[in-house]
Amino acid sequence: MSHTAHIPSHRKPRRSASKLALRAGVAGGVLGTIAVAGAAGPAQAEPVTETIEMPTLNADLSSAVAASAEATQQVALDLELQAQEDAAAAKAAKDAKTAKAEADRKAEAEAKREAEAKAKAEAAERASRSSERTTLSASAGSSSSDDGGSSYGSSQATGSAAAVVAFARAQVGDAYVMGSTGPNSWDCSGLVQAAYRQAGIDLPRISSDQSSRGTSVSLDNLQPGDILYWGGRSSSYHVAIYVGGGNFVGAQNSGTGVVERPLDYDPPSGAVRLL
């Protein structure tokens, strides 16, 4: 091989002038930018200050605050006044209740006194009536005896019969109340039982039992003090006392009360004699 033969070179091939120029321009631009930035230096942050204006209390705001305080005070006064009014109303209601209770108590006491006075007056009137009727009965009995007696037998009560008749007549005017045995109201058998107690005779309480006692007598031969009955003997539904002169005394019903009536007013079924 010739010493002048071509041997590949190890050097880098030269770049074209256009490429070199391009690279140089880019690099220069970059470096120029860096240089400008460096010359300028880091930017200093400028402090930010902002002033906030606070509202000032002007005359209008001061008036509003004063009005609010005055309104609050007025509400407090109103509440206090309401509380006082409520307390006064409660006291008035309590006083009225106490006054009413006292008035009711006085009215009740007055009514009780009136009732007691009325009862005393009725008792006095009854006693007076009894005395008058006893005198009249004695006079009538004497007159009947002089006349030979009545068609119903003897009309003058004597002995124990007089006490029975006097008690029965003394109750005339009293009320009739079923089941009552006195002293101011009676039923028929209650009156007969109480009248016979004046003669020391204890009768049963029921009219049917009372009519079963003693001895049967004719209605034409009655004597004062005989027990009259209506219905069958031992099964009677009503009883009364023969008081002489053709009359009887009995607790008839709630409409008439205790009355003295002639036998013709309500003719009895029969009679029994215990005296």
Rank of each mutant, 00 (worst) to 15 (best):
S212C: 05
G25V: 05
V259E: 15
V177Q: 10
S180W: 01
T33R: 00
G149T: 07
L274Y: 04
V26D: 02
S131M: 11
T4W: 11
Q223E: 15
T49W: 04
G270C: 11
T256L: 14
G29Q: 04
R126I: 00
S216Y: 08
S145K: 11
A67Y: 05
L219I: 07
A89C: 00
Q82C: 02
S18D: 06
K97D: 14
L31M: 01
A27V: 07
P268D: 05
G225N: 05
D174P: 04
Y196P: 03
R233T: 08
Y176Q: 11
H6M: 12
A124H: 03
N58I: 06
P224D: 09
D146A: 13
S130A: 15
D60K: 09
A162I: 13
A127C: 01
I201T: 10
S9Q: 12
R23Q: 10
R23K: 02
Q193K: 15
A240Q: 09
M178N: 13
Q198P: 03
V249W: 12
N247A: 13
H6G: 09
A111R: 13
R129D: 11
M1P: 10
S254F: 03
V172D: 06
I52N: 12
I7R: 14
L274G: 06
A161I: 03
S234C: 04
A107F: 00
D209C: 02
L222V: 12
G41S: 02
D202Q: 12
A5M: 13
A99F: 01
T72E: 15
Y242I: 08
A109F: 04
I52Q: 13
A170M: 04
G179R: 05
I201E: 04
R105C: 03
E110M: 10
S155G: 14
A27D: 00
P47Y: 02
L79S: 15
D174N: 15
S145M: 12
G246A: 11
H3I: 11
K120F: 04
V26P: 02
I241M: 10
G257S: 08
D264I: 11
D174L: 11
